[in-house]
């Protein structure tokens, strides 16, 4: 197995070990903890009064547009990282290209800003 695959195998083993540890602790808790069901215990908490309506009530998500902007900029970040590693070799050419890229994306942010997307409504 190559070193590259092996380094990721180690990460996968860490994930498995963490899962075993957490699952083991939950299992231990199951053995130790008491279980005395009473109907009142299973009412969703709503500051002490009986819950009104369902817990999955409608609410206005005011920042869903931010999530769309986030996708845009997250992809940008993914593009920037390989460039950042190789900047020494790419030198001036890479720098100019990336600054053009960043400026275009910054223009997108300015556009969203002007359109009032970043304003709290």
């Amino acid at each position: 197995m190559s070193d590259f695959l092996r380094s990721y195998l180690t990460v996968a083993i860490l994930g498995g070990a963490a899962f075993l540890l957490v699952g083991g602790l939950l299992g231990l808790g199951r053995l130790i903890r008491p279980r005395r069901p009473q109907p009142q215990k299973y009412i969703p908490y709503e500051s002490g009064v009986d819950p009104v309506g369902t817990g999955w009530s409608q609410s206005q998500i005011r920042y869903y547009v931010f999530a769309l902007l986030f996708v845009l900029f997250d992809v940008e970040a993914v593009f920037i990282f390989p460039w950042a590693v190789r900047l020494e070799e790419l030198a001036l050419f890479g720098l100019v290209e990336m600054i053009v890229f960043i400026v275009i994306l910054a223009l997108g942010l300015v556009y969203a800003w002007r359109k009032g997307v970043l304003r709290w409504v």
Binding site: I32, R33, Y42, I43, P44
Partner: peptide, 12 residues
């Protein structure tokens, strides 16, 4: 915390 009851609310 290990000794606390593990509650899952109705409707969850």
């Amino acid at each position: 915390f290990l000794q606390k009851e593990d509650l899952i609310p109705n409707g969850a």
